[in-house]
Design a protein around this nucleic acid. Structure first.
Lengths: 210, 210
DNA sequence: TATTCTATCGTTAGAGA
DNA sequence: ATCTCTAACGATAGAAT
């Protein structure tokens, strides 16, 4: 009933392949005309149907001959140089997909770490299953978060002091020293530090907007 | 802020034309590849950019040469015969648009007539501004409506008689004779006939489903 | 076979990085 | 210049005619 996503492969069903051919051919030729008109460039497309020799040529026979002549006259060396053919197209596409996969993996990892961080923030402290790399990344993420929190605290403090016409020098509430000291305690994790500071400073509101 | 409908004409703004060229060229070449793959047909497209001699050829150089050879080898007479070029494309398009306009005009007229008919049905009788053609069309529309009403009445009557296990021969309640007789009366219009019959036969429910 | 309809999918204009 | 993002626009698969 509902329309399927089309796979880029030969359509085996005769009837649907013919219908698709007719529809998409028209669609493609329309795009040729539009590209040619909108940007005033030389474009031509030649389509041979599946049933023998009746090519459809766009945008016009004259334009086609013009473009073909231009193409034929170009020296072979030039042709092969700056020409984007299907192989380049596919290599290009593969590269982009790979890059997307990398990006998604990065995003997923960050989301996982954020979940762990939040779980620990609400007291569900369990870091046993994590590797050293996990812990390093987690520490980096927490440091980054703390930095952002301090920036927001500074901003709020500055805003308040401006409103009250007082000049105060703001300083980080969560300092590396503070963390260093507390982390030295074997019974305290960095996450505990963050959680404690949140509690002490009424930071829960900030946590929500991390 | 919101995207505009694109007019099919040369884009004068340099930057947006270049952007459009890049985007649409890629889109078009993608469609060439897809058409070629999905339907296994010979297609080729050649695009010359606006800045000198670097054509992009799809789906591949080999395919292009193959298609071009095939194209060049075809006798001139064949080429011009079965070839759909831009002119044919545009003529075709113009015809379709004209046909659409005709259809819309027909639909509009019918809707106007239906409005008049309904206005008269509820007693707002005013046929003074109508031409002879209008009245003829209106009469035709009313006859048609009456026909449909009678069909529905028959159907309902048959259903009821079947339910009651009785065999009755149904006949039109609104007959041409009835209309003829009543229309002969100068103080009565066809619309009055329809309205009267609706009233007499509890036909208001039917009127709603005309 | 060709056209019509429509829900869904795909493309891209415009703005921002 | 390119890439990204998103909403709006356009194309079309599938079914019906």
């Amino acid at each position: 009933m509902t329309r399927k996503k089309v796979n880029l492969e030969y359509i085996t069903d005769d009837s649907s392949r013919k219908t698709t051919f007719r529809k998409r051919k028209n669609g493609m030729l329309k795009q040729v005309v539009e590209l040619s008109t909108l940007c005033d460039v030389d474009v031509c497309a030649i389509v041979y149907g599946p049933n023998g020799g009746e090519p459809e040529v766009f945008p016009s026979t004259e334009k086609a001959h013009c473009v073909l002549t231009r193409f034929k006259c170009m020296p072979e060396i030039e042709r092969s140089k700056n020409m984007l053919n299907q192989e380049k197209y596919l290599r290009n596409k593969i590269e982009k997909v790979k890059e997307q996969v990398r990006k998604l993996k990065r995003d997923n990892r960050e989301k996982e770490l954020i979940q762990i961080m939040y779980a620990n923030l609400v007291g569900n402290t369990n870091l046993q299953g994590l590797s050293v790399m996990d812990l390093n990344d987690l520490t980096r993420l927490i440091d980054q978060s703390i930095g952002e929190i301090n920036k927001k605290i500074d901003k709020i403090a500055n805003t308040m002091s401006t409103q009250m016409s007082e000049t105060t020098t703001s300083s980080p509430i969560i300092t590396p020293d503070l963390i260093e000291n507390l982390v030295g305690d074997r019974n305290t994790t960095i996450l505990d530090v963050v959680a404690t500071n949140f509690d002490n400073n009424g930071g829960n509101n900030l946590a929500l907007s991390l």
